[in-house]
Design a protein around this nucleic acid. Structure first.
Lengths: 103, 103
DNA sequence: GCTTACTGTTAGTAATGACTTACCAAGCGG
DNA sequence: CCGCTTGGTAAGTCATTACTAACAGTAAGC
């Protein structure tokens, strides 16, 4: 049930932008905030949420805190998606065969 | 960029509960609402969001509207996850080799 | 030791969104 | 034709949350 926090964390556009930025490599808070329209504390808070969701981890370099992707959070989503994919697709195909898709 | 709507739709617990209920098979609005603590209009609104995100589709049976899973939305998330997985894992492993994970 | 750089935290505010109640439309059976 | 069932829509309320500004803490350089 960890995917709950992951979905909630990735729902916000700004927060997902922070996350995707980290996907290109480790970054410090200031560097991330510099490339975004929001203030530094906002980025710090977003990183806190991402960390709680197990999506990122942290490493201290002097006063700098370098953040980077943690596969734990993504793995939670992947597991949920994989297990849901089968039964959902099954139910969907059953419907397709029964009647056409009404848009 | 369609995964944006999908993430936002699946972030809400109630809405994901509706979605997961549909994962077990097609359901009408009333049936879904009967098994949930919220009112029927709330379910209807949630279904509207899920439909806009391409996660569910609809079929009319008289006055009844039967909803069922649409793989389009899930596919959008899967694509994003797969493409993100590689570079994220790569960046993560690079960090692991450099220094230990600080919890 | 003192200043400077970098970050986390708190308080307060504005905006988003989830929910209910009430109302309206459409199909089915008497 | 009329009542019943089923759903979508509108308005309004309440909670959540993303954001900024101000403050506090910690490490590095002189």
């Amino acid at each position: 049930m960890t995917y709950q926090a992951a979905f909630l964390a990735l729902a916000d556009p700004t927060r997902r932008q922070v996350f995707e930025e980290l996907g290109r490599g480790p970054r410090s808070v200031g560097v991330i905030a510099a490339g975004m329209p929001v203030s530094r504390p906002a980025v710090s808070q977003h990183l806190g949420v991402l960390k709680k969701a197990g999506l990122v981890s942290q490493r201290a370099e002097g006063t700098r805190r370098v953040y980077y992707i943690d596969p734990k959070g993504l793995a939670a989503i992947r597991i949920w998606l994989d297990q849901f994919w089968d039964e959902a697709l099954l139910a969907f195909q059953a419907e397709i065969e029964k009647k056409d898709v009404t848009e």
